[in-house]
Design a protein around this nucleic acid. Structure first.
Lengths: 104, 104
DNA sequence: CCAACAGATAAGCACAAACTTATCTGATTC
DNA sequence: GAATCAGATAAGTTTGTGCTTATCTGTTGG
């Protein structure tokens, strides 16, 4: 059940921070670690969780592995959220802004 | 940090099942427990987690407490997701369907 | 070829979390 | 008022998870 993996992946602040770093572009594991106070194996573990959850994907370039956001995981969250559209009255401003963007 | 609570709340299959039951309407804790093989205190704990995450809200009616979906938590997920709109190319069919619904 | 580097994996530890049984608190009914 | 009911809370157990140090595997450069 991929949904469980996705929510679990995002339920950790360190992993969310990693994901947010990747939102601004592809990075290797060492670069991701800059400015974060975690060990190298911890980073490796977190990236493994994010990859399994399809929130990031990787591309090996020789000795380096570059990671980037994988849209698949985000699509799955959106799909899950879409099940509850009855609860989306005019109150959800964030999504309305998104709607506007996508219409352009 | 409410985001962490929300993702954690949804990272458990039992809690997601409870949430999905509530999506079809308000229910008390006992009714929620029907067809689920968990103890009464477990149900109470899960509802407490969902409430703290603002995914459900409650209303006491005498001896009964009715629970229902709280749109606030959903809105927060949508808000988080909206941060990654650059990753929403034409591939996200679930959201496009949602867009169509909300335009009506 | 070998040393250095990047990152994955193994193993261990401390704490968190999902479950339980037991108990408590508040509401309802007779 | 007492018994029953609904649900919260307490405490304990088991399992899972985020961290670490140690080690391994594969790539690069001299």
């Amino acid at each position: 059940m991929i949904e469980n993996e996705i929510f679990k992946a995002l339920a950790d602040p360190t992993r969310r921070a990693i994901f947010e770093k990747l939102a601004s572009g592809s990075m290797n594991a060492s670069a991701l670690r800059d400015g974060m106070d975690i060990s190298q194996p911890a980073m490796s573990q977190h990236l493994s969780v994010l990859r399994s959850a399809r929130l990031v994907r990787e591309e090996r370039r020789g000795r380096f592995v570059n990671y980037e956001v994988d849209p698949d995981g985000l699509a799955l969250i959106a799909g899950w959220l879409a099940k509850y559209r009855a609860y989306w009255p005019a109150r959800i401003d964030a999504l309305k802004a998104l709607l506007k963007d996508m219409d352009q």
